[in-house]
Amino acid sequence: MNLGLATTYVVGGLMMLSIIGYNISTYNSSVETTSSVITQTKLDNLVSILQTDLSRIGYNVDTGTTDAFTVAEDSSISFRGDIYDDSSDDFDLVEWEFDRDPDTTTTNPNDFILKRTWNSTPSIPGNEVEYTYSVSYFRLNYYDIDGASTTNRDDIIQVEVELMVESNEPYYTSKNGDESYYRVVWKRKIVANNLIY
């Protein structure tokens, strides 16, 4: 083999390795960016539903604020409120529950099911509609009008929600099999305006 041909093979090989590396890098970046956008959109949708629900706590509940909450725990909340202003009863009954049931529909082992149960006619318990979302973490804290933490349902004015969502699929898998998932967090206190006055 002459020197020119050998040099051509070496340079060509290096170029080929470089192109393969470039391809892998571009692919990984694309997957990461796409994962981030999908995960953020997933969180935005969930936040939008949560905010609508929580800001309506006690709305059209004529029996007083005492009856606005039926459950107020750190992983579940159930409350009365006219969520869509259109229920046949005066108000709806909504429950959010995070009981750490793994979500087997995704490859992410950190995904658990967050369940929303909505009944537009609480007088008919069988009319409940159930929605499920996959989240990594969900926690609720409750505060009274002075901002002090409380567990007394009669005193709750603010609900703090912490929500963590990860991508359903890994955006990167290392050589030893460790998978990386894109993660977004939302944490906010929501004042239930209908309970203030």
Partner: peptide, 11 residues
């Protein structure tokens, strides 16, 4: 927004 929420609650 959290700070604004606290201000909403001022009596």
């Amino acid at each position: 927004q959290d700070v604004i929420e606290d201000i909403k609650l001022i009596k």
